[in-house]
Design a protein around this nucleic acid. Structure first.
Lengths: 340, 340
DNA sequence: CTGAAAGCGCTTACAG
DNA sequence: CTGAAAGCGCTTACAG
């Protein structure tokens, strides 16, 4: 095994034409005579030729890759996003250069610098926590279009694709209000993250619209994980009267709270209503199934890929802010239908 | 923005040396005089030079990428594996070319063909269901080392990295036997998949060693998902006496069964003992927490990456079969400690 | 319709 | 220690 690589020259020599002609055949040019084409194609197959796209890209000064940098691949939300990006890039003939950062801005710098050396046509970045545009700028330069996903960045002048966090939380809050709840908490998330801030805004807006004043102890922070959320459950019940419902920062937090409630002898969906955010697969399969907001991460990935390819082909486009809609998915965790 | 790309020639011209000298500086050659090096480095920084690795690879006839083809990125097990691969490749200065197939062998053929054109140093393939080595052979050729992960392939002559499925299921079964169970089912999975077959073998072996004959109705198939598994719960209880415990094909199935048991008024971990396989994050956070087998997908990813890089640098190595250990993680779902 | 030549951005002997 | 030249595997005007 492991013989020399077959090149254009081998094919040309093999059937007595020039390299230029073989190249034209490969690129499907109509200039080539039918009989020549067939001879070349037979030779291609016979020798098992594999196109060297890097060489072609070098000569044509083009790129056929897009860099995808993901903060946390083990989170299904981002993994789905990545799958969507790859799907759309593949359909357009591009290849995905993957980089994962595990939420480290140090690794993010390194990963981006390394990927830049492969001359991507564009970059899709789901930034690590505490990323800053000023640090990113020197490494990504101004020649490569970038799209930032999901997390707002200080000092960013790139495309930005974000979920409609505010509207989502507003929908969830209105839903609980319609079910008759008045003392509704906003549970989980770090208040200094942009997505948590936006979701709290949507919640506050809906509460205000209903004429309810939000009490400080209804705002409970926690890391956005199941275990941390479960551990914070008690914080909801320190003062009487306690909330009867909670809009949760995301599904992980909601499932954690659900666990915490059960452990305290309360039955989620009966004694206490709650909603999530993300619609991860477990949301539908949990007990009770979770009312939550669908965000379509795979569709968002496709959207990001399409946008970055458009920017790559039209460098003069202005950076744009894109807000992706979210839809409320009502299940049992938000309690029984209210009979009007 | 979007000015012309800065090349070696620009740097050479900018500080009055030849391109060869700049190249030597970039590659850290000790031949270059210190003063020259400093001048060149200053110019590199000043002009914001970005190395074009594709051009270098072309000239040096090397590759700095590895293709990673994943059947199902939305499964956290594979997403973790991918993260591990990327982590180890990045540390070795390689970049990951991602391809996802969504379990379609058609897409897998296309994705591999496309990635091959980027001249990867190696391929790590987590194959789609019903993949066949004979179809893969023509597209990956013989020059590129490949490692197949997790799913056994007919007609495969590549490296193979697999979990110790048999031993894992054996450990789980022995654990339930030690807890005093005799009527133990093997629940979930498709019996025609290699991993399910191997796990069933481990289960059967442990049962045989305990002198118990496995009854046919203790072998229940289901798609390896939570919902399908929940729907199959009834199949365990069609005949009396019913099993008192189940070794589940994987965690998703175990969590589904747990749901199904609860819905039928049984309490998992009390009335019925069960174990999973994979140790996904939800396993620890479910109620009750799930006894399961840790497989360390991220470590497997690193292992795969290291092996493929070794093969890339030593083409004469023989393909090898690597069996990764799994460890039993005892939690509440398998019931109380038996007082001896 | 086909071929000879130049060139993409690098690296690598080889001179000096 | 530094530079001129050739070449990696392609493509693209340009002749013919």
């Amino acid at each position: 095994m492991s013989r020399r690589r077959i090149t254009l020259s081998d094919i040309a020599a093999g059937c007595g034409v020039s390299r230029a002609t073989v190249s034209l055949v490969l690129r499907g040019s109509p200039l080539v005579a039918k009989s020549t084409r067939e001879r070349v194609e037979a030779e291609l197959k016979k020798q098992g030729y594999v196109y060297n796209r890097a060489a072609a890209n070098l000569r044509r000064r083009t790129s056929s890759s897009v860099a995808l940098v993901i903060n946390d691949l083990s989170n299904p939300f981002f993994a789905e996003f990545a799958a969507g990006v790859d799907e759309a890039l593949g359909a357009a003939g591009y290849v995905t250069l993957l980089g994962s950062t595990n939420e480290s801005t140090e690794r993010q710098q390194k990963v981006l610098a390394s990927l830049m050396e492969h001359d991507p046509a564009g970059i899709i970045l789901s930034p690590a926590e505490h990323s800053d545009g000023d640090r990113l700028m020197p490494v990504v330069g101004t020649r490569t279009p970038m799209l930032v996903f999901n997390r707002e960045l200080p000092h960013a002048h790139w495309d930005f694709l974000v979920l409609d966090n505010r509207r989502g939380a507003q929908l969830a809050t209105e839903h609980l209000l319609e079910r008759g709840h008045r003392r509704i908490a906003f549970f989980g998330g770090h208040a200094d993250s942009s997505s948590c801030r936006e979701r709290r805004q949507g919640y506050a807006q809906a509460m205000r619209a209903a004429g309810i004043e939000v009490e400080p102890q209804w705002l409970v922070e926690s890391a956005p994980t199941r275990l941390e959320a479960a551990a914070q459950t008690a914080a909801l019940f320190v003062r009487d009267p306690a909330p009867t419902a909670a809009v949760c920062y995301n599904d992980a937090v909601a499932l954690g709270l659900s666990l915490g409630l059960t452990a305290r002898g309360r039955r989620p969906g009966h004694d206490f209503a709650l909603t999530g955010f993300d619609d991860i697969p477990e949301a539908a399969a949990s007990l009770p199934p979770l009312t939550t907001l669908s965000t379509g991460p795979r569709a968002r990935g496709r959207q990001a890929a399409e946008r970055i390819l458009m920017r790559a082909s039209q460098p003069d486009l202005e950076p744009m802010r894109m807000v992706a809609p979210v839809t409320l998915n009502v299940r049992a965790s938000s309690g029984p239908e209210r009979v009007a």
